[in-house]
């Protein structure tokens, strides 16, 4: 899961990046609207965390422009202003949700999960593909009767594959979900995680499409 974080305050940005990385999110952090536009044009993100009070072009203006340019990614607005009008302005500009500063990291994560879920057209918290079901909040996976707890990276991998059952994701697409700009990517890391998952869940949970990538299996 790759998230674009737009936040001008260094301390907040650093902490968010670190805190969310613990949960397997790949965070790209930029500090102004121009860099955010640049990032969005270079990568595809699953979600954007957007601070309203940015220097120069503020978050609301950026958001309006992005929506006009048909960027549909879910946007969670972070704001220090808690008046109703501020919230209304943000939501009307195209935000999907908002959090008023200061907020709890746990709450932010729950809202991120909810946004992603809704964005993928699901309303129930469990992701299901065939007889595989994944709980994003506990990272618990069950394949038939077999239950297992996934590591951060394993979860991200599984979540990416289960988001669109049947779609084939390339190694680099999966790496994109797994790592932010500054993370170093080990060369065979996706293969290693797939191996680990197959060991936990059975060989047929992830299928290898030769020369293309991976897709979720029928198990």
């Amino acid at each position: 899961m790759r998230i674009l974080l737009v936040e001008d305050d260094r301390m907040i940005g650093e902490s968010l990046q670190k805190g969310l990385a613990h949960n397997g999110y790949a965070i790209d952090w930029v500090r102004d609207a121009e860099s955010a536009e640049l990032g969005l044009s270079a990568h595809s993100y699953d979600l954007m965390l957007l601070d309203i009070g940015l220097p120069g072009k503020n978050g609301i203006v950026l958001l309006k422009e992005l929506r006009q340019k048909k960027f549909t990614l879910p946007v969670l607005m972070l704001t220090a202003r808690d008046s109703v009008t501020d919230k209304v302005v943000g939501l009307d500009a195209g935000a999907d949700d908002y959090l008023v500063k200061p907020f709890d990291l746990g709450e932010l994560e729950a809202r991120i999960r909810a946004l992603i879920r809704r964005h993928n057209g699901r309303s129930e918290p469990l992701m299901v593909a065939g007889n595989i079901s994944l709980n994003p909040s506990t990272r618990e996976i069950s394949v038939g009767d077999c239950k297992a707890l996934l590591s951060t990276r394993e979860y991200v991998l599984m979540e990416a594959l289960m988001a669109r059952p049947g779609a084939v994701l390339s190694t680099s697409q999966l790496e994109d979900r797994l790592y932010g700009w500054r993370d170093e990517v080990e060369s065979n890391t996706i293969a290693v995680h797939v191996y680990q998952l197959r060991k936990k869940l059975g060989k047929r949970c992830i299928m290898n499409v030769r020369g293309t990538g991976y897709k979720i299996g029928e198990a």
Partner: peptide, 19 residues
């Protein structure tokens, strides 16, 4: 309003510390 920014940082830093 301005107090929110440093307090947000503190709260997040604490959350990170816990993890």
């Amino acid at each position: 309003h301005e107090l929110r920014t440093p307090l947000t940082a503190v709260q997040l830093q604490l959350d990170v510390l816990k993890r």
